[in-house]
């Protein structure tokens, strides 16, 4: 379970997050929605410990990110907005490296990496350098590295952005599969994607949580699109 409590983040004069509190329960697929600049990536970077908040607390399964960052990071797999790939390594070498980073026992690594390659559909390109892969395979490699060490929580920042329609379908299928065994948090600005995949959605607007509810609580005849427009327009009118 990931819990953000009263998170504020200031970049110089810009307040990127304002008193953000949210919780992702175990087994939940949580979608973070918002327009560009709403604070989605900032929230995800804070959840993963990439940088700390200005104030507020992040806890992963009850462990505080500030007091035990390595303990928290062991429980998270993260795909940032730009997949962090080393172009000179092959897919297999890269996953071996990430598995070692994530403290997988040396003798278990070959089987662990094989499992991930199969799950992510990367077996055919396992021996190819990452720099020579198509955008879709690079995104899969990015997701694959997040699975190394089998963390219970997966965090993906806009995992389908820039992909062609077929690749989008494939990645969504993969996220759906992973959601059966992991807590998944992902950001998107595609309302349909969140509605298809998630059990809960959080709408961020101008750094604040504008809406946070399970998707099965949407009123009859109301779509996520209606809610998104309603809450973002309300927030803009209020500010």
């Amino acid at each position: 379970m990931i819990e953000l409590k009263h998170i504020n983040k200031r970049f110089g004069n810009v307040q990127a997050l304002k008193d953000v509190s949210l919780t992702a329960q175990n087994g939940e697929i949580l979608g973070l929605l918002g327009v560009n600049g709403a604070g989605k990536s900032t929230a995800l970077n804070i959840m993963t410990g990439y940088f700390p908040p200005t104030s507020g607390t992040v806890t992963i399964d009850g462990t505080d990110m500030l007091t035990d960052p390595l303990g928290c990071k062991r429980r998270i797999g993260y795909l940032p907005e730009h997949p962090p790939l080393y172009d000179e390594l092959t897919v297999r070498e890269y996953l071996f490296f990430v598995s070692r980073l994530r403290e997988v026992k040396a003798r278990s690594i070959p089987a662990h990496v094989d499992d991930i390659l199969s799950l992510c559909g990367l077996k055919d390109v396992a021996g190819r350098p990452l720099g020579k892969l198509s955008k879709g395979y690079r995104q899969r490699a990015g997701i694959a590295q997040a699975l190394c060490g089998d963390p219970p929580t997966l965090i993906f920042d806009e995992p389908t952005v820039g992909l062609d329609p077929r690749q989008v379908v494939e990645i969504r299928g993969l996220i759906r599969t992973l959601g059966k065994t992991h807590t998944v948090i992902f950001s998107s600005h595609l309302l349909s994607e969140v509605q298809q995949l998630c059990t809960r959605a959080v709408i961020l607007h101008e750094g604040k949580v504008a809406w946070n509810a399970p998707l099965n609580q949407l009123a009859k005849n109301e779509s996520l699109e209606d809610v998104f427009l309603r809450v973002t327009l309300r927030e803009e009118a209020a500010s």
């Binding site: 970077n45 993963t48 410990g49 990439y50 390595l70 303990g71 990071k73 062991r74 998270i76 993260y78 940032p80 730009h82 962090p84 990430v98 980073l101 994530r102 403290e103 590295q145 060490g149």
Partner: peptide, 8 residues
């Protein structure tokens, strides 16, 4: 981002 979000 990979290094700084890994348990190392």
């Amino acid at each position: 981002q990979l290094l700084f979000t890994s348990p190392i």
